[in-house]
């Protein structure tokens, strides 16, 4: 059995940031392996360690800059990685779910994984949709927002728990091949070991263009267009307690006592 993990280099904005047209100024962004994808990767690596899976392959849509993040993923136990990029993608200001689906579907069709694991969402745009959209495109089964997983390779079934709202979980079984979107907290993602980091340098990182994947530029054109990015108007009506930490704490203590706290 083989697993394909979709891995995104996610970006988070710093406390103070600047918007530059239709993008966040590079200086106020921190990029890293997308938090949800860390859990998806860990899920795949654990399946491999339990001998339920033969190979863990990752796929990332992104420019050369994100190879550092991909090496990190290889260091944590993926066997090989694929990076999809093209000049045609460079020119678009955003890739919508449809465009990402087309790219990933082409990879799934060549790799033919039994299981595709994605994070529930990305930290930046947070569409929460690529996994389920991909499943429909490649005609796989699926389950979204999975926080527990058991794979039965003989019966070719994934038994999952889906985390619903309000502390309720749904138990579901999904036939393989399937796409599962993985929620944070499903496991405890590991740090890369020194040995892992050394080994990662020798692992395969293949780059695929649109032509390699047999896709036309029109197939990955985003139908959603970004019109504007703005800092939301603060709706805060909070009374800000100013001064040194001690002064603010003293003022807060007064407020809390007025509310009957600590008496």
């Amino acid at each position: 059995m083989n697993v394909l993990v979709t891995v995104t280099e996610g970006a988070t904005v710093d406390d103070e940031f600047r918007i530059d047209g239709l993008a966040i100024d590079d200086g106020s962004l921190t990029t890293d392996l997308n938090e949800w994808d860390e859990y998806a990767l860990e899920t795949a690596v654990r399946l491999a360690e339990a001998d339920l899976v033969d190979e863990v392959v990752t796929v990332t849509i992104g420019p050369e800059d994100c190879e550092g993040t991909i090496r990190q993923v290889l260091a944590k136990g993926a066997d090989r990685a694929i990076r999809v990029w093209d000049d045609a993608l460079e020119r678009s200001e955003m890739l919508d779910v449809g465009a990402k689906t087309a790219l990933l579907a082409a990879v799934v069709e060549t790799e033919e994984p039994d299981l595709v694991l994605t994070g529930v969402q990305s930290a930046d745009e947070g569409f929460m949709a690529t996994g389920v959209s991909l499943a429909a495109a490649v005609d796989y089964g699926w389950a979204a927002v999975v926080n527990a997983l058991e794979v039965d390779p003989d019966e070719r079934i994934a038994r999952v728990r889906r985390e619903l709202e309000g502390g309720v979980e749904e138990r579901t079984e999904v036939d393989l091949p399937a796409v599962l979107t993985i929620q944070t907290g499903i496991n405890e993602p590991r740090y890369a070991s020194l040995r892992g980091i050394r080994m990662a340098q020798r692992k395969e990182l293949a780059v695929r263009s649109l032509a390699d994947l047999g896709l036309e530029a029109s197939a990955v054109e985003s139908r959603l267009r970004l019109r504007e990015l703005a800092e939301p108007e603060s709706e805060s009506e909070a009374r800000v307690l100013e001064g040194s930490s001690e002064e603010a704490a003293a003022e807060l203590a007064t407020v809390l006592r007025e509310q009957g706290v600590g008496r």
Partner: peptide, 16 residues
């Protein structure tokens, strides 16, 4: 209208 970056940025998107 959507919220990006955990609610710190407001994005306006258009689609035909």
């Amino acid at each position: 209208t959507r919220e990006h970056y955990g609610g710190k940025v407001e994005a306006t998107l258009e689609v035909a």
